[in-house]
Structure formats: C-alpha cells, structure tokens
Design a protein around this nucleic acid. Structure first.
Lengths: 161, 161
DNA sequence: GAATATAGTTAGCTGCGACTAACTTGTCAA
DNA sequence: TTGACAAGTTAGTCGCAGCTAACTATATTC
C-alpha cells in the first residue's frame, strides 16, 4: 500500500504531463533526459528545465542539473495515477465509444487532468460492466458501432433526399 | 441555419465560460450584469471587465462600459455550442454513469472545452443508443447501477475479510 | 588533449487569466 | 439635489507556462 495517506499536492495539468512523460520514458527502459522529455511533450528544452525545478521543489523528481532525472517514490505514485487515468479514459474512448485511436490519445491527454475521482471510478466500472456483458454474450460495443453506422446512413439519406 | 459556415474562432476555455455564463443568465430572463457574471463564475468583477473587452474584440458580445451586456448572433451561436457540449456531457455522466449531479456539473464544466467534436458526437450517439435499448426493453443504466452496487459489496467483503 | 557538436541551463520576454486597490459612474433615498 | 452606496472600470501585480537567444557543461572524435 504505497499510494495511501499521501498529501498528494495538487499539480497543474502541465506538471502532471511532465511527470507522466518521465514515467513513460522510464517504463520504456530509457533514461529520461531533458531532451527526450522535450521531444515527448513537444516543448522547448528550456521549458523542461523549468518544470524539473518545480517538480524537484515538490520532491517528485530527483534532479541535479546536468544529471539524469528519476522519479522519487512520491513522483512515481503521482505519475502512475496520471497514467492510470489516461489509460482508463483511452480504453473507454476507443473500445466502447469507438473513437479513433489518435483522437482518443489527444482527448485522453487533455482530459485526464480534469475529471474527478468519482467519474474515473465510474468510467472504469463501466468498462468492466461492458466486459461482463461481453462474457454473457452481449457485445455492447459492437451493437453501438452498428447503431452508429445506421444513424450515419440515415443522415446521408436526409442530406441527399 | 444560423451556426453553419462560421469561422468560429478558437476561444480559450476561460472565454467560453464567460460566454456560457452570459448565455445562461439571459436564458433565465435576467440581464447579464458584470456583477452577476462575476458571481456566476466566482471571479472578480475586474476579471469580468477584462473578459468582456476580449469578447467584444471578437465580436461575440455587445459591450459598452457601464452598460448591460448582450450576445451578438455569433456570440449566441458560440455560447449555444458550449452549452450543448455541457449538456451532452452532463447527461451522459448523470444518466448513464450515475455520477452525482454536483460532481457531474463540475466535471462537465471542466471538460466541455477539451473533448473534440468526434468524441462529443460519439457520446451523444451513445446516449441515444442507450435510450434505444431502453425502448427495446433493456435498461442498461439500471443494469450498470446494479453492477456497481455488486462491486461495492464485493469490495466491502474484501476489506473486512 | 583541443575542437566541436550536442545537451542542458540561464536570462529575459510574452500572453493569459486571475487578483487587489483605487478610482469613476450610476442610482436611489433623504 | 446631493450624498452615499453599489456597480463597473482602470492600473498595476502575480503566477504559470510557454518561448528564444546566449551561455555552459558534457561527450565525442580526431
């Protein structure tokens, strides 16, 4: 039980993004260098330096100038939480709503910082619910996709006719 | 057909909020005074003045200092679109996911600016899909609620046992 | 080991969106 | 009609999150 009773200071969306990027780089077995983070988030290297200073202040990263960055335990917890929210969202958007993967990735990035804990919990539960239904032989995602196609066809008729 | 072929300049989340607040005040039959907008959004009156100047620049509001504010046609369209997104989200969160209304209101406010058009369309379609299922005799929202309760009960056992 | 390329930092700037404090305008009541 | 209070504006500040340009440190290569 590592992530419990954490004060878990509120982080800005932007700092959460930096944290997540470092987390992902490390998960890929790569060193998180300033340059990589910059490329990952499409920001300047200078912006990364600024963010690392803030994250160090908050004791979420181990950062010495000109040295490789690693996450502290608190940083790992915070980053894992962001990544978890990201994945919950992305799964829901792609697998249930049928949003295109690229669009879903972007939407998840932007939204992972804003939805509350309750909503994430419900979203997660809903995907489990759909999976459960699947096991029971009802393919809700598939039915929804068909429903969308029908609607689309209807619209085309409307516009043409 | 008023909202078609609009350049519909990209607005910041914050300006969209101002626009929506004015829209809602007017919809309630009230005059949108600076003070009301400030109270509505919980910001200072000075911030409202700043926002109104920007919105005027973009020709979305009719604004003269010391005078009541109204929306231009373009402003109405933009505000209606924001309100529509807000409602789509809120409906989905409350009626399908079963999120508490207050939490849903907050989540919708924060998220209405970030999700893309495709995602909103899918979300809307999904609520229609659920309604369709309802007509056909399958109450998905109700089934999901039961599912959540079962999960909750399970967790309680886990924690206690 | 010096020259150079790459990576990282610093300094200083911008725009946004909030704020406070102080001032101006509008309104209403005595 | 004037004085006081409410509403609105202005000026100036702050923090955040970017940026560029210029500098410094590290690594590589000859």
């Amino acid at each position: 039980m590592t992530a419990k009773n954490k004060p878990t200071q509120k982080l800005s969306a932007s700092l959460e993004d930096y944290l997540e990027a470092i987390y992902n780089l490390q998960a890929d077995g790569e060193q998180a260098r300033s340059k990589d983070i910059a490329e990952n988030l499409d920001v300047s290297r200078a912006s990364v330096t600024g963010a690392l200073r803030l994250l160090k202040q908050k004791q979420l990263v181990n950062y010495q100038p000109y040295d490789a960055v690693t996450l502290t335990n608190a940083g790992k917890d915070a980053a894992a939480e962001v990544a978890r929210r990201h994945n919950v969202l992305k799964y829901f958007l792609i697998k249930i709503l049928g949003v295109q993967p690229e669009a879903a990735q972007i939407a998840a990035c932007k939204t992972e910082h804003t939805l509350g804990a309750e909503t994430f919990a419900k979203l997660l539960a809903f995907t489990e619910f759909v999976r459960e239904k699947q096991k029971q032989g009802q393919d809700l995602a598939g039915q929804f996709e068909k429903f969308c196609q029908k609607e689309k066809a209807k619209k085309n008729v409307d516009t043409k006719g």
